[in-house]
Design a protein around this nucleic acid. Structure first.
Lengths: 238, 238
DNA sequence: CGTACTATTGACGCAGATCAAGTTCCGTGG
DNA sequence: CCACGGAACTTGATCTGCGTCAATAGTACG
């Protein structure tokens, strides 16, 4: 098989055939949900864990007065609520951004497998650590980068993350985020995102049409945003 | 023994005597470093892993033009570079904020122990997940909270984290951060931190003298910052 | 073709940055 | 015990990136 999850895990470690079988079995019970569906409700305890097989989702913090901050974007191959489920701790809300396909996974059972396959547990540790690094780089973005730099940075990040799972190539990928999503992800308003997006286009850094983005100069985007790809823990970190 | 690490881990799971012995053995080789010392240099690969036994440290991202963002504050009982060490991946810089006492740990050996003690590995998974939630809440802070709210929030967070390890009680704790550290942690300038700190004092929310902070009204601080303690995954999440 | 998102554009305001001086606090050495 | 030097903290004046408010225009779908 050649799913996003397989690509992702085997980019980190060389899985044996047996590992692959274990992973496949994990993904056996699939289901779908439409865009906008709540996958994990706010504060839900001991909930289910999933692998996102197709489509995008996001995890967010909602404030009492309506402010919203997206804390993490979930792409195909990413885990949803795995740690919280296993620990029996509450999760933040997670909502489907597009129509999604999910595989429900049994967290306890998965942890059981880890005891048998060091490679598998290493791959998951890698995935977990990478998610954390992504969030820490987001802190750096929101805390210290300008709006222009933040957008440049996130478009590069998404390209590399999607490329890893075979969903981006030749500087082009499908971007289902609205300007409001981008704003909530980057700590901005959608109005400002709109203006800065135009600047990026005018400056010849990106082109967008119909939910598709093209990076016209990764080189310039990297320079602009002081992009250091090491945090993504991919193989050939430029 | 009753170290911060023991308190932290046993707050999550009930460790057996044997687990405690394993943990103790991990902490056998201790060393010290002065305030300002670099514990992990930028981009260092396959480095050492430590447990912070005493003192504070921080992990940060430095930009080419000198901007700095602290991505994580490390308190006694926290792990330093554990995942990165085990995975052989590069780490961000980590610097001692105060004089610190460290125990070098062997990441491979520790992972070995996990295979034998489910409780121990659960405790570490809890710690890891909690660190991630803390960072995600920081994203929410920097992205959507005002400077006033951010400071209120971080003072509550630090209180609860320190209380867990027995280093804060009765709304008072020692706060070795300078205003510049606070600024780099919260995505502000030290000048603005200074002004807002005065507002918090005038409003009767906190009092500070000689590197010690007193929370005069946790109630008000929580209201102001829309503080939801669940993300810290402590036992009695009020 | 209406209803409801989503994107766009302009005018204006403000939280927080920047610039520029001080001042206070300490640790250190004479 | 005091003088010195460098952090750390203050305070004021001014500027600006981004937010807020308001209105319009696409677009998508039922």
């Amino acid at each position: 098989m050649d799913t996003p999850l397989h690509r992702k895990l085997s980019s980190a470690v060389s899985l044996t055939d047996e590992d692959v079988i274990v992973v496949d079995r994990l993904l056996s019970t699939t289901q779908v949900a439409p865009a906008g569906a709540t996958l994990i409700p706010e504060g839900h305890v001991g909930g289910e864990a999933y692998v996102l097989l197709a489509g995008w989702a996001y995890r967010f913090r909602m404030f009492e007065d309506g402010r919203r901050q997206i804390s993490r974007l979930l792409l195909p191959g990413d885990f949803i609520g795995l740690n919280a489920s296993y620990l029996g701790m509450p999760e933040q809300s997670i909502v489907a951004l597009t129509d999604v396909q999910l595989a429900k996974i049994d967290a306890k059972l998965l942890m059981e497998h880890f005891r048998q396959s060091p490679r598998l547990s290493l791959a998951f540790l890698w995935s977990d650590t990478r998610d954390r690094f992504i969030t820490e780089e987001r802190v750096a973005s929101i805390g210290r980068r300008s709006a222009y730099e933040r957008l440049a940075h996130v478009f590069l990040e998404l390209y590399l993350r999607l490329e890893l799972i075979g969903e981006a190539a030749e500087d082009v990928y499908s971007l289902p985020l609205t300007q409001e999503h981008l704003a909530d992800l980057l700590g901005l308003t959608s109005i400002h995102v709109n203006r800065v997006l135009h600047r990026l286009k005018n400056d010849g850094l990106i082109a967008m049409e119909a939910r598709t983005i093209r990076l016209l100069s990764r080189e310039k985007l990297m320079r602009v945003s002081d992009f250091d790809p090491r945090y993504l823990m991919h193989r050939s970190p430029k």
